[in-house]
Design a protein around this nucleic acid. Structure first.
Lengths: 153, 153
DNA sequence: TTCCTTTATATTGTGCACAATATTATTGCT
DNA sequence: AGCAATAATATTGTGCACAATATAAAGGAA
């Protein structure tokens, strides 16, 4: 019952560009999970912390732009992080539509504990760093293209 | 309130390799959604169809190995696809632990309608095909490494 | 001012994704 | 045969991700 499979069939799984990106994302999430759970974070929450450690406070919209996520994803996620004591959410008095997300001292302190996260995960990438950086830049370029495409349509 | 940010801080968002992969996966999902919804499929469901168009029937475990997913994800997903009439699930009489997933005629027929999906999405990748193939191969290699790492631990 | 439009965030409903656990079938050992 | 160990799938509970929609504030035109 195995189907015929021509080598140039555009529907072959191993010819897809999107599938390995999807699989990589899932596998990375799985790899990060045990490491980040020690910090009490999920992977998307870790990304929010990275963004806030670079610049805070930031609005929900600014976070969404940095992480390519919308309010439907961020609002409940930020509420959980607020509950956990990592950040605060309050309406901007200048413009009551906006919500400013700021770090608590606990949230700022967590950065010290996260310092070793990247290096403790490079084990999964075993390859020379220059190669990894090239891959990163390629995917970053792809993301920029996809994001532009998304905004335009 | 902007934080100091050293150029070699390992926690800088733009130095992460995992973040662009995560963002690319999300953006791709968003890009595929309107195209696949015309076929009545989600992106993971589309991947299951790609796998089954290559070879069917397959066990749940074999599908999970091909797509890097486990039964917790696949079981409900396959049930929805069974409800939609695309495939059948039945216990293997040879080994009652296994579930054989087979295509219905409707599921096989859907392949014809999916032929144009890949080309209708290359618009989002605007770059020369050789470059895209190189990126694909790099990410495939990464996925292989991550998957091995995952099995071993 | 009144009202219309736009903007920012929140809510609702659906479908993944996964860890932990449960269930049932097979295998292997004695 | 009896039974522990293993294997394959299913279930449960939590947390994303997103489209569609709702809510409320700001801006702008007449």
């Amino acid at each position: 019952m195995t189907e015929d499979q021509h080598p140039d069939d555009p529907l072959r799984l191993d010819r897809q560009i999107c599938f390995p990106l999807y699989a990589a994302s899932n596998l990375i999430n799985r790899l990060y999970r045990p490491v980040l759970s020690k910090l009490g974070l999920t992977y998307p929450q870790y990304l929010v912390m990275l963004a806030l450690w670079e610049q805070a406070p930031r609005t929900v919209g600014a976070l969404g732009e940095a992480l390519y996520l919308d309010s439907g994803t961020l609002t409940p996620l930020l509420k959980r992080m607020e509950q956990a004591g990592l950040l605060t959410r309050k309406r901007d008095p200048e413009d009551e539509r906006r919500v400013q997300v700021a770090l608590t001292s606990e949230g700022r302190a967590l950065k010290a504990e996260a310092q070793r996260v990247p290096e403790s995960l490079t084990a999964g990438f075993e390859g020379d760093p220059a190669e990894v950086e090239k891959l990163r830049d390629s995917v970053q370029a792809l993301v920029a293209t996809l994001a532009r495409h998304n905004r335009d349509s």
